[in-house]
């Protein structure tokens, strides 16, 4: 029941999903969007690949264990929070580098952490459920 058209479509759709997710993530601080939504959108892109082309394809495209991805996200968020604490502020206080074009900040790093952790957590759940059929037989 695997359709090559659907599989190809999903593979083409995935970059679109990811690009849109990144856009939503980066604009999140000033317009609707943010790490949670972006993470869910990206996870949805992978979910479509799983449906259309099977979990192995999705895994190959992800290249990294979703649990590690989530862990990296958590570490990002922790660095963002701890960095503020180490530089004399309260934990998780935002620090802004006032660059004219690129508004870099620990807050952005934190939101990226949210993004990665949500992708990692959700994909770990989906992969686990998807794999569960095989083990039981």
């Amino acid at each position: 029941m695997r359709s090559p058209i659907l599989a190809t479509g999903a593979r083409l759709l995935l970059p679109l999903f990811l690009g849109f997710a990144l856009y939503i993530l980066l604009r999140g601080h000033n317009a609707p969007g943010g790490g949670f939504i972006a993470g869910l959108i990206a996870a949805l892109g992978f979910a479509i690949v799983i449906f259309a082309d099977g979990p192995e394809a999705a895994r190959r495209m992800l290249r990294i264990d979703p649990r590690s991805l989530g862990g990296i996200g958590l570490v990002c968020a922790l660095i963002a929070g701890g960095g503020a604490a180490l530089s004399g502020g309260a934990p998780f206080q935002g620090i802004w580098l006032d660059l004219p074009v690129l508004p870099l900040s620990t807050v952005l790093l934190f939101d990226i952490g949210v993004f990665l952790a949500v992708i990692g957590g959700v994909l770990a759940l989906i992969f686990a459920l998807e794999d569960s059929g095989k083990a039981g037989g």
Binding site: G121, V122, L125, I126, A128, L129, S132
Partner: peptide
Amino acid sequence: GLFAFALA
């Protein structure tokens, strides 16, 4: 997350 874990 809760729902998915419960499903698992």
